[in-house]
Design a protein around this nucleic acid. Sequence first.
RNA 1: GGACCCUUAGCUCAGUUGGUUAGAGCGUUUCCUUGACAUGGAAAAGGUCACUGGUUCGAGUCCAGUAGGGUCCACCA
Length: 910
Amino acid sequence: MPEITKSYEPREVEKKWYAAWLESGAFKGKVAAGRESYSIVMPPPNVTGVLHIGHVLNNTIQDILIRRARLEGKSGLWIPGLDHAGIATQAVVERGLRKEKKTRHDLGREKFIETVWEWRREKGGTILQQLERLGASCDWDRTQFTMDPAYSARVIKVFTELFQRGHIYRGKRMVNWCPASLTALSDEEVIMKPSNGTLYKVRYELVDAPGQFVQVSTTRPETIPGDVAIAVHPDDPRYAGMIGKKVWRPLNRGQIPIIADQAVDPKFGSGALKITPAHDKVDYEVGQRHALPIVDILNANATLNELAGPELAGMERFAARKKSAELMKESGALVGEEPYQNNVGYSERADVPIEPRLTWQWWLRYPKIEEAKAAVRDGHIRFHPERWSKVYLHWLENIQDWCISRQLWWGHRIPVWYRKGLDKDALTEAELKDPTKVHVSEKGPSDPENWVQEDDVLDTWASSWLWPFATMGWPDKAEMARDGFDYFYPTETLVTGPDIIFFWVARMIMAALEFTRPGEPIGRRIPFKNVYFTGIIRDAQGRKMSKSLGNSPDPLDLIDAYGADGLRFGVISIAPQGQDIRFQEDRIEQGKNFCNKLWNACRFRQMSGPAGDNSSPGAILGRITPSKFDADDHAILDRLLSATREVDRCFTGFEFSAAAQALYGFFWNDFCDWYVEVSKSKLQSEDTKANCLAIQDLVLRQTLLLLHPFIPFITEELWAQLGYGGANASSITESTVEDASKCATALGSLGAAPDASQAASVETMKAFVSQARALKAEHNLASRRDVKLMLITGDSAWSLIEGNLSKLLRMAGAAEITRREAVDGAPATVTALGTLYLDLASSVDVGAEKARITKEIEALAKHISGTEARLANQAFVSKAPPAVLEGARKQLAEQQAKSAELQRLLKSLG
RNA sequence: GGACCCUUAGCUCAGUUGGUUAGAGCGUUUCCUUGACAUGGAAAAGGUCACUGGUUCGAGUCCAGUAGGGUCCACCA
């Protein structure tokens, strides 16, 4: 076996093992009868996406879950994939065309889509290769893309089904229109942003009372040409006599009525509201109530059209805003303007203000809303952290129909055909359901020459909402069997960000409940049993990571600098459950350092003695002689069991960073800083050496297994180097990790169950060593290893010291510890094992020594009085549990004894 | 307007049913290249747990309120 190198060099190790895993099929999801399944579907990143630190966190967690599940003996399946991301991808390709001074219309629909596919083949989906560098153990053979023919067919199938079930309809409604992408958006794709604008005060002159005016306030004077009324509150006394009268519209001059409507807030401004039904949702509703005409003065790209009047027609909306204000200033209609901040809806993708726009769109009445609520409320689906369920339920309580059509070309074209010659916008509700006029099917009409297909495509989320089951062959029985649907569905855990709880999580739940396993209980139809919401990773200043800020580190650079394992461990250790995360590169460095520590501890094991039979836990246990255990052996096994127990607990509670920290602390502090150090003495003696090496093997083997989900590459490498894979060098991925109780049973059956009191004595010795080192450091002897120590103590403490003398001397850096009856004039410290003196040849600085001891006495006195007060409290004594009471009494006794000894020391210094 | 989250060491954060003297990493100070590791080791300094009140024998932890910061939902022109 080659010697382990001095420091861990990740690059080659990562490359080697990733290839080996792919080669051996370690990531393949296999239906294994009799074994529990554990499946995860990856939230499909956008095909345009590049790996950022958020993906790293998200996918590391998924990888941890799936690798741990495999080690627990479950059959794991992690399905990767890509989202076609309609608007984003189309925008990327159109941007490319623009460089050639072309638009998609120059190419035509078919050619354009072909161009997008070309782009996808050449540049799309690089993110999946980047995930391989991270070590993601996906079943890559099952990678799916939402625009793949098979997946697309499933999307279309769902549309037609929902249409037939009466959930989908076409309707002319106010939508959020993106003037940049030229498409409708769902409410979820609109982001409200506070914007600084101007509130314009405009007066409308009464037609039959020249010189009298009604004043309104507006932030959008350019829409005045579309005004069809002025509305006031019916009970507003100021306008009581005016209702029904007419005023002059100041732009695109014409007469419009004053109407009364409850929607008007009399307390806002003048209490009069201009009504522009084509350009405001509330105004539209008012218009409907009063049968007002709709004057749409905007083009699709938000320039003004001829209905806006000759002065404004053709202008861009913001220029028109200025211009209209100027025009009204000239005419005297504008009587004031003031700076004003209001919320404006922006298109999430294009980042421009949306326009409310009346258009024909396809709408979905969500299916299974009540059941979707029940699924989470009744715990069939568990959210982690649980509080997100409230957000989810609130959204479902107030859910609105979903606008699923998009005026794009890249996407799933809606499977609706209109009979040629019909005006689709003139069809009545009944005609839309008439198969002789409107055809809806997966395959299309048999006589396509007589039909025209709908131009619109589906919202991207109206394809990805099927992800958990459409990636498993649904609805085709043969494909479902091939993909193991029966075995792997529902999936176990979804790992995602809370920002897409509405976009994706809630919709997946509804789709799954509607379409999977009809007639079966809800627990069989849910798409996943758990949803783990990650935090959002922010930069050191707390800002969101974003391309435009340039504050997002490139994960590939981080992998180069710290290794994939270092990155994974670092990221997971700063990602507590449920909170946003400040990215700190030094924590990634810490991950790297931990890997190096692990590496070197294994190196130490290798250098300490020949590998015994390491092929199985049983083989290692066979090398152990429990009768030769000393306190340190008991302690490290005890700690190993509790670390195992803690990790078990963390996995059931989705506390990954706590698990990582527990392993970090155990391995670094308990194993490296103590056990490995005491091993250096134990290895000197043939009597203790074999046991010590076997225990190291036991600890290292288990630690590698516990750590493997977090840091897969290095653990696999060390597993091989130390021979834990046995004669046929099997991979760590093929092994199993045992839980704490099984480990305890295995040790117990060998008579090697760790003894708690022995383990506790090690804590006492650690404190003793630490105090000895501190005593040396106080007197500038920290680096000396030849100091002599003297101890005044009782028989039992002394026997513990004697029994562990060589280790204690090595750990404390002392040449000897001798037992004394009395010592005078030497610096000392009071330990739980007696009063420890430093044998100083030189004279002691009595003043400094007295000051130090006095300070310690004072600090102790505070604690003593606190404990005394508690014990003096009758209520405490009568109500506190016996264990707490006992603890307090014991503590007081110890504190008092220590204080007395310190007082004695102080006196002895004169 | 509604809901939720956060405030603990210089910095970034843990702290799981309330119970000894509140922890980690980084940073700082001092010392150490001793044959696993300087990507390391040892020691040390540093916190009235935002504030106020309540419940309790006992509160960083539970409850109410206040202040500051953040997120989501709704949105009045």
